[in-house]
Design a protein around this nucleic acid. Sequence first.
DNA 1: GACTTTAGTTTCAGAAGGCTACTAATTGCC
DNA 2: GGCAATTAGTAGCCTTCTGAAACTAAAGTC
Lengths: 229, 229
Amino acid sequence: MTPAARRGAASASHSVDLVLLTSRDGVLHVRVERAAGARGAVQLPWATPRSGEALATTARQLAKRAAGSEPGWIEQLQAFGDQLKHPAAAGLSVAYVAVLSAPVTAAESKRGGSAAWMSVAAAGLTGRHAAILAAALEALRERLDGAPIAFKLLPSTFTLSELQGTYELLLGWSLHKASFRRSLQAAYLVEPTDEWRSEGRGRPAQLYRFAPRKRRQGRRGVRFDFLGG
Amino acid sequence: MTPAARRGAASASHSVDLVLLTSRDGVLHVRVERAAGARGAVQLPWATPRSGEALATTARQLAKRAAGSEPGWIEQLQAFGDQLKHPAAAGLSVAYVAVLSAPVTAAESKRGGSAAWMSVAAAGLTGRHAAILAAALEALRERLDGAPIAFKLLPSTFTLSELQGTYELLLGWSLHKASFRRSLQAAYLVEPTDEWRSEGRGRPAQLYRFAPRKRRQGRRGVRFDFLGG
DNA sequence: GACTTTAGTTTCAGAAGGCTACTAATTGCC
DNA sequence: GGCAATTAGTAGCCTTCTGAAACTAAAGTC
């Protein structure tokens, strides 16, 4: 039986599916739910938009439903219309990616049961949702330069080491401390608060907040080195 | 009457819409068609995918239908599910962007009548198709570093001035000649042919072909300067 | 032959980015 | 108290990248 046959005739309607990410203990976590009726398959939060409703609206409501609060950043990923299996048997799924600063622990526990935060490495998604998650992580990396994704993964004040750690977490490789701070300063993106945080051992770190002040017109040359074949 | 009401109930099906671009006389042109029944409204090529057909397949077939040949590069843009007007009254349109090296003049004329290449500035699109075109041009710019878009807009051999001109056309600003060639050489993306082209006045230019040889692992630092608020 | 136009290279100065090594402030342990 | 360990943050060096200008090269035009 081919995947297409298993799915049967393509469902006429489409779904909006959300990859909602947060950072916890230095690991990216994704919000997942368990199907009620099924054998408890893990899936991404999804919804079927009401007629005439804009996709972005559906996605934002979905994020609010799944997390209890507005995400700090949300953007459409792309549409998935392959033959991979989808919980709603939707022929077409429009995926959104969102990041959240801190999973609201109280509201989250109340919501309980069928939903959870899973490490992205061990999320256990299958079918189309697995493909969506992979594409979302890739897209985050690509859009990291153009949107304050890393900042929105953090609480409103943070240390520069936390910020760098978030970038490294998303990129998947490590950055150079001095260069990182130099570039950050040159871009006028953060401003120091007068608070410091002592994290056990070591010198306390100053807390900063995201406060972009001036925007340089991004008129760069061409970067051929990412082209490949 | 709201746009939603004018559109009536959302159509259950979705469309695949194509922004097919080519460069002609130093100006970007987009492939458009004229609606047959209507008062000749200009629109992008679009199709309603057959059940179970992958989006990418639909898009490639659409490109072939519209241009008569395979595009050199094609990629999904994003899904548009707003309330803007669409020729098929589709509630959801998945847009694709493609570029073509040279509009096949013979096959093109045969196709004639209802289709044409229009300058992107004067395409005269409306509703959702206007939004799709605008987003496509923006996306081209963003993806220019990561895909050989500019190369696929050109014929198989080209001068470096033509290549630079294509980049400038897509970016919307001019590049520095020496820097451009230095970067190009460092990336081992092109190789010279033994042909030269004399374009009227001035020194003849050597022809090159796209032949990426090695790929550097694109491990860069973070670029904060495109972040803004 | 002199002038114009386009191609292509060279040189230089300044900016940006990576590396090492340094100072600073705290905790934990003796 | 004193010292090692640990983390934060900075300074200097040096290489690479990049933009500006000036240069050479090869064609057409007058």
